[in-house]
Computed example of a mutant assay.
Amino acid sequence: MSTILLIEQLLNGLQSGLMLFLMAAGLTLVFGVMGLINLAHGSLYMVGAFACAGVAAATGSFWLGLAASIAAAAAAGAIVEVAVIRRLYARDHLDQVLATFALILIFSEGTRWLYGSFPLYLNVPPSLSGSVTLPGGIQYSLFRLAIIGAGLAVAVGLFLLIGKTRIGVQVRAGEADREMIAALGVDIRRLYTLVFALGAALAGMAGALVGTIQSVQVGMGEPVLILAFVVIVIGGIGSIKGALVGALLVGLTDTMGRVLLPSIFGLFMETSAATSVGAALASMAIYILMALVLIVKPGGLFGARA
């Protein structure tokens, strides 16, 4: 494998990891602060993708579509939290799983009713189309570089929000002792709605950005949701730093595994067999990584609790 191809795949893994971070950051906040298992988080990712596709098709502007994806996912998240999720905080995790799984079905069928069963496609904005030449003569997609930049910017913004603002102090305090901050006069219901809407907005943004690379279709959120749960287990529940590190590890492991493993097995196996075995092991790699992390640190890399 050439050095240029290896660097390109590393960048693809970085891009994939940062998109997973947008999903996992909201999920880990909700899980860490509220103690809620939200299986419907992937549906909010889908809502953002479809909102972007619909508005971009109607206006011809990807940027208006991106804004619509964030707004639509945040609004959907806030409505779901007030109407459904708020009634689940005191219930056990089985009730939360069943209720949020029902939300997946509702979102999927509602989206199918609005948009149909056929996939939609988002065009890369003209200002970000084409490729750029990186040091070493590497040609790489300008849009994928923009996704990497956006992911890093969101990560920095979240770290500043959680670590440097009053809302961030309330979120961290709510994770540690929600009864105490409620007793101190903090409107815990409003805080929960805000956290849930923020997580939904990040998921919607990820859906819009990934929708330009893949197709936008009903059910697109469920595979990403599984990876997001793997990320927060690796990074540690409730930790934004853990979500970032875990997402990068998962993104790089998945991408590089799919590229390197078939080549490695090809050294001593037939090409068809090497491709088959390598692809199978590559799909298992992130779960093997998760198992190894849990063996060493059962609470995740940056988890405060097991």
Rank of each mutant, 00 (worst) to 15 (best):
E109C: 13
R144Q: 14
Q96N: 02
L158D: 11
I104C: 13
Y121V: 02
Y89V: 08
M180V: 14
G151K: 07
G137E: 04
V132F: 13
A73Y: 02
D95S: 00
I106V: 00
A74V: 03
A146P: 14
I188P: 12
S141G: 07
L134H: 13
V156P: 04
L152I: 07
P119C: 02
L94N: 04
C52V: 10
G168M: 02
L160F: 11
S131N: 14
L184W: 09
N123V: 10
R190Y: 03
S69C: 00
A155L: 13
S108G: 12
D177A: 15
L145E: 02
Q170L: 14
L158F: 15
F143I: 00
G174V: 09
T59M: 04
R87W: 02
G185K: 07
V154I: 14
T165M: 06
A99E: 12
L158E: 03
W113Q: 01
A146T: 14
V171A: 07
V124N: 12
P119S: 01
A53S: 06
S127D: 11
R87K: 07
A75Q: 00
R189Q: 15
E81D: 07
L103E: 13
F159T: 14
S131P: 07
Y89Q: 05
L152M: 05
I104H: 04
L66E: 08
L105P: 02
A72M: 11
L160W: 12
S127Y: 08
E175D: 07
A83K: 13
L152T: 08
G54P: 00
L98K: 14
I181W: 01
I188Q: 14
G149L: 15
T133G: 01
G174E: 13
S131A: 15
Y121S: 11
A182I: 06
Y140H: 01
A75F: 01
S108R: 12
L152A: 03
D177R: 15
I106C: 08
G136D: 09
L114Y: 12
H93P: 01
E109N: 14
R189E: 15
G174M: 05
L134R: 02
S141C: 12
I148K: 10
L160P: 05
D187A: 02
G185L: 01
R112A: 13
L158Y: 04
A72G: 09
G116L: 00
G136L: 06
A71K: 05
V156G: 11
A58Q: 06
A58P: 04
G110Y: 10
L160Q: 00
R178N: 14
L103R: 04
L94C: 07
G157F: 00
G136K: 07
V84S: 06
G136Q: 04
G116K: 06
K164E: 12
G163K: 07
Y140L: 08
A182C: 06
A83Q: 14
S127W: 05
G65L: 05
G54R: 02
G110H: 11
L152R: 02
F143L: 01
R189N: 15
A76E: 08
A57P: 00
Y89G: 12
V124G: 07
A182Y: 04
Y140G: 08
R112L: 06
R189P: 05
S127Q: 10
L160S: 13
G136H: 10
Q96P: 01
W63Y: 06
G174P: 02
E175S: 15
F143V: 01
V97E: 03
I106H: 12
I147V: 03
G185V: 06
I138G: 05
I188N: 09
L134C: 05
D187T: 10
A68N: 07
T100N: 09
L103S: 00
S117Y: 08
F62Y: 03
